[in-house]
């Protein structure tokens, strides 16, 4: 009986090769993080966070990029969250299985897979050029509108899933008491789905904060030496964001800027980590509450 022995060997092979494949990705991730940390950690300082960009790498900082990212993030959240949740409510609670709702569904699924740079082309043509009067061209508002369209499908998908997981018995009970559709959604479905919606939205926004390509396309600048005023007019000012600043520094030949890029990456990753940790914490807390 030679076969079983050979088979046991092959089975073991597949097991170990599979484990190796799984760990390969994690290994690369570790190497990446170590490499960036080694390059960037010594450069991190309070000055780096609070300085404007400069031609001299050792004086340059990420203040305007960091503030720009936060502006963009808040604006995108303000625009995309209500739109996404509204669309999800409509698809789950109102539309039923009509042709129209299937069409919207396919659209959302496809949009989630459209390359981000295509959204940049859309933003350039619509928000920067056609709506120039409103957005003042290459402004933070144009950027946020573009980003909102980019993250919208992700928010819709996550919110739908959260709404879908609300047990039907709750809806039935509420309708049977004479609740209108909106009363049922507002008082019962949304409160139960909210943690899931929030988690999904934060994850979607964390995608937005790392995006570079569409913002380059709509023309975010790399050299911004001022902060936008906290007003409606501030929405119409030019902007930059962390990933663009990092990209700019990477493309310079001097080693000093590469170090700056690594330090900027660390800041970007820290922001991302915070957002993801919040999302995971919210998910964990809502799971515990459902189990109680």
């Amino acid at each position: 009986m030679r076969r079983p022995k050979r088979e046991r060997f092959l089975d073991g092979m597949l097991h170990w090769v599979g484990l190796g494949a799984t760990l390969f990705g994690l290994l690369v991730l570790t190497v990446l993080l170590v490499d960036v940390s080694l390059d960037g950690l010594p450069r991190l300082s309070w000055d780096f966070l609070t300085s404007y960009p400069s031609r001299r790498p050792e004086q340059a900082g990420i203040l305007s990029a960091l503030v720009g990212s936060l502006w963009l993030l808040s604006l995108t959240a303000l625009i995309a969250f209500p739109l996404g949740v509204g669309a999800a409510i409509y698809l789950e609670e109102y539309a039923g299985r009509t042709k129209w709702s299937r069409w919207v569904e396919i659209n959302v699924a496809n949009l989630a897979a459209v390359p981000s740079i295509i959204y940049g082309l859309l933003g350039l043509e619509i928000f920067v050029r056609a709506l120039f009067a409103v957005t003042n061209g290459r402004s933070v508002l144009s950027g946020a509108l573009t980003m909102s369209l980019l993250v919208l499908p992700v928010i819709v998908l996550a919110s739908r899933e959260a709404i879908h997981s609300v047990p039907n018995s709750v809806r039935e009970a509420a309708y049977a008491l004479g609740g209108t559709r909106w009363q049922v959604v507002r008082d019962h479905v949304l409160p139960l789905a909210f943690p899931g919606i929030l988690t999904g939205t934060i994850l979607a926004l964390s995608r937005a904060i790392g995006e570079t390509a569409p913002l380059i396309t709509i023309g975010a600048l790399t050299y911004i030496a001022f902060l936008p005023p906290l007003s409606l007019e501030g929405l119409r000012t030019p902007f930059t964001v962390l990933p663009i600043q990092i990209f700019n520094w990477i493309s310079r030949p001097q080693k000093g800027f590469h170090v700056n890029a690594a330090a900027g990456i660390l800041v970007l990753l820290a922001v991302l980590f915070l957002m993801n940790a919040t999302a995971i914490y919210l998910r964990y807390r809502s799971q515990r509450r459902l189990e109680l």
Partner: peptide, 15 residues
């Protein structure tokens, strides 16, 4: 539905 109330098979209190 307000005039004709309904109780279901499994108790379904709101959470």
């Amino acid at each position: 539905r307000r005039r004709v109330g309904m109780v279901f098979q499994k108790p379904n209190p709101f959470p």
